[in-house]
Design a protein around this nucleic acid. Structure first.
Lengths: 291, 291
DNA sequence: ATACAACTTTGTCTAGGACAAAAATGAATA
DNA sequence: TATTCATTTTTGTCCTAGACAAAGTTGTAT
């Protein structure tokens, strides 16, 4: 695998890969006849672990000071503890066929109702996927297979017709560079359940486009999420800028890893817990004066 | 805008941008205090046009020999869909509300049937969006708003239950780094209409994961698309590698800009025309012995 | 404990060079 | 005239190595 492909697969920049080799001597790929780097499958796996550690806030200097085994242990420690006791769910993730997965998820959704499904099935499922993937228990393909079925189900819920037409509209989207959308999708589903009309924008949008769009669509709020891939600093800066350029009557809601320990900004709603979304919606959208 | 952002927006590689400046003196961006390139909005627009010309087969040497006005004229000439006579569609793109867009698209789909809808509405719509965007007529937000509604509709078609269970399964996906999925989604819809059972993977997948997945799912084929953002060179290499690592009985289908002028590989089906998908499916999937 | 200054780490940019692959050109042949 | 083949030109992706601001860490003084 060449350096460009590796960069695509891991999300680590080409320049970073080269300078790590210069400074830390790792990764040290083979070279082809032209002197071009060729990375082995083992190096790719190793770099995936490195990326996970980076996403959890460790710095390269520390990471490369560890042995491969120590890195593995550390990752195991950091990744959300694998305490999901739902064996059915685990089995589904590890070996279910696409149609089995869809069927099982749909069955659970109907049995539990949407709200309980999101909190007790969808969220644990995401954690299971995340954990299984970083530890190498399940491969990327498997992860996508499962998460795509969940996404399909949730999107269907989102686009289903509602009873009345006078709900406040809320725009759900991610900024350019933020590719993790499933968490936000869970939130959007709960928002809908709680009484708003979610408008889901699937594609990432440059910050500068948002104020005009929100204005044009006359939404009551804009909800964003920032996964661990997004630097917290950047998230804070973006949210500040967005708050200032957005009309004051439009509520701004942020969620996701990178926003958990954010010093709260003025007129910014931070949502760290899916379970509190119903209250959040009531307070900020349905009975705004009582809040 | 810095060089990395520009590269993301235009799909032109960072190295290409720098070497064009070295060789042709264009683009010649301002520099900040550190000597870093800063591209102006005009240069970004200009480079979008350049990219369009490249995608139409012109070579940089020729492109940069032209004046800005000549380039604009040439693009106007080359871009097909300005001739889309469907004024309703154009108006919808430029000023329809999300719900209006969804309603209109659904109405047309029901009126025309799926096949005609894809060919006569969805495809022209994509071209209209692409054209409007390259010429600066519509902004990113608007483009996403419209394309997301179309995506929603098509996904619903894809996940709708079919009559019988014995269709050959085909896996639809894009490789890591390829983010344009709508063209492939149109194709998948037509594949379904023509009698295969499409399995849509929404998230990009590393090449190396595909053979095992295809095997596990027992699919009859794998379909990929490569937009103009994907370098044709890379596309060819990837397809060659995939062909070699995929079980020979699994058909491999490729589509998209970057694959149009590809010297045909052995045992690779290249699909450049949506209209021919029904025949393609018949020949390769339904009556494979007659082909 | 908190604030501030000094130091260290890090990734993204810079420049210019090399070279294979693709495209264009030209010459020779059918 | 059309087709093949060899040569030349064009082109983008990789290479090395250096610079520096921004982010993170440490140490000191309040």
């Amino acid at each position: 695998m060449n350096i460009q492909q590796l960069s695509n697969e891991t999300g680590i920049g080409v320049d970073a890969l080269r300078i790590w080799e210069r400074r830390y001597g790792f990764p040290a790929p083979e070279r082809d006849t032209r002197g071009f780097r060729i990375y082995s499958a083992e190096q790719v796996d190793e770099l995936r672990l490195v990326k996970t550690l980076l996403d959890h806030g460790r710095r390269p200097g520390k990471i490369f000071a560890l042995s491969a085994a120590e890195r593995r242990d550390l990752v195991a420690q950091l990744v959300t503890s694998d305490s999901t006791s739902d064996q059915g769910l685990r089995k589904l993730v590890e070996e279910g066929s696409p149609s089995r997965i869809s069927a099982e998820l749909t069955a659970r959704r109907n049995e539990l109702g949407l709200e309980a499904f999101v909190v007790d099935v969808a969220l644990p499922l995401l954690q299971l996927l995340d954990h299984g993937w970083t530890m190498g228990r399940i491969n990327v393909a498997r992860e996508h297979l499962v998460s795509d079925r969940l996404e399909e189900l949730l999107k269907r819920e989102l686009s289903a017709e509602e009873d009345n037409g006078e709900r406040p509209q809320v725009l759900f989207l991610t900024l350019s560079g933020e590719r993790h959308k499933l968490g936000l999708l869970l939130a959007a589903t709960l928002f809908k359940q709680a009484g708003v009309a979610p408008l889901w924008l699937n594609e990432e949008l440059p910050l500068s486009e948002i104020p005009a769009l929100a204005d044009e669509l006359q939404v009551a709020g804009v909800a964003l999420s920032f996964s661990s891939h997004y630097s917290p600093r950047q998230a804070r800066e973006d949210l500040g800028l967005l708050r200032r350029s957005l009309s004051p009557r439009i509520r701004l809601i942020a969620g996701g890893q990178s926003v958990h320990q954010l010093p709260s900004l003025k007129d910014l709603i931070i949502s760290t817990d899916l379970q509190q979304i119903p209250q959040l919606v009531k307070r900020h959208f349905l009975h705004p004066l009582k809040g």
